[in-house]
Design a protein around this nucleic acid. Structure first.
Lengths: 185, 185
DNA sequence: CTTAGAAGCTAGTCAGCATAGCCAGCCCCT
DNA sequence: AGGGGCTGGCTATGCTGACTAGCTTCTAAG
């Protein structure tokens, strides 16, 4: 009985591979077990069950997106930073469409995800800092940005745009629309 | 063996009740069977299986939304019509959050849903008619509207807005942002 | 009244989650 | 170096749910 040397992180990585390759509905313990070369029950040594695995995957994905967003926005400001943030969001989703579907839409409601979700929120808020929005106005502006990015990206990832018009152009229009709505100083 | 007198439409209605009450993940043939007072295999007399039931539910939901949108927009025009369309979209989702999650994001890719999806698209395009957009510009504008409505509504339905700020206000801002982006004549 | 088809049923298979309980490899401690 | 305990594997088992096969009964048309 040679040991495989699994860990919770390795299980999550395998789960993400399964999702990337076969879609979020194909995430089963059986599939992850097969990929890691282990019998399904063995996964319970590292992960409490399918539900926990899903939240761990969600945390991983949020964290990845946040890290990328931070890297992209660092050193920029104003309209430029906002546009880059939105593009980065979409680019991530386009690169990993299935993975995005595994990201919970309400991270702030799941205790385990609050930390990761809050960090993402902070990046949005920080990017809007220069506009001098009051607390409440900043929240509204952040929500609008998130709704736009999530709405477009999730539709694109799901193949929801039937027609052949250029999607880059549609998204740039959305970005312009959003930037225009932010207050000039 | 008294007959229950089921039909495909009745099965879909029961499925929607299950979704409304217990969420979209609770849609199982077993649950629908229990609700209709029938053994699970009997459902196959009316519906080819869970997958088909889901697409029938999707069609029903799209059709309902379209009907409501048409009723709301009829007799209006311009910015007013656009705003009403977006509000109607969100209101439907707020009333039936779980049901919305059962609506496929890509109706134009599923042959069975093309008709219903196209009708919804037509309503969007017709509402924008007054702005005199060229074909391509109309597509981009429709997509933007859909991304905004879907993005906000799906996040709201999923409980994705953690903080307590007024959601009506956020949505009105999005509507204003969108309307402002449409060309003045 | 007969008969065919539709609508229901039971029984059974298979996938997938989960739990229980056993066994072997590995590390640490003396 | 040897031994013990933890840990990471395993098999076996049970449960739910989708789906199939094949039977029975109700009903409606002729």
């Amino acid at each position: 009985m040679p040991r495989v040397g699994l860990s919770a992180a390795a299980v999550v990585s395998a789960a993400i591979e399964v999702i990337d390759e076969q879609g979020v509905d194909a995430l089963t313990l059986a599939a992850v077990a097969a990929r890691t070369g282990v019998a399904p029950p063995s996964l319970y040594k590292h992960v409490a069950g399918l539900a926990e695995l899903r939240t761990l995957v969600g945390i991983r994905v949020i964290t990845e997106m946040t890290d990328r967003s931070v890297a992209a926005v660092l050193g920029r400001g104003g309209d430029e930073a906002v546009a880059v943030l939105l593009r980065t969001y979409r680019d991530y989703v386009r690169e990993h469409p299935a993975r995005y579907a595994a990201m919970p839409p309400d991270p702030l409601h799941e205790p385990a995800m609050i930390e990761a979700g809050t960090r993402m929120l902070q990046v949005f808020l920080a990017t809007l800092r220069e506009y001098g929005l009051t607390d409440s106005a900043a929240i509204h502006a952040t929500r609008c940005g998130r709704a736009i990015a999530h709405g477009f990206a999730s539709l694109e990832a799901a193949g929801g745009f039937g027609l052949s018009e250029d999607l880059d152009e549609t998204y740039e229009r959305l970005i312009a629309m959003y930037v225009a709505s932010l207050p000039r100083r």
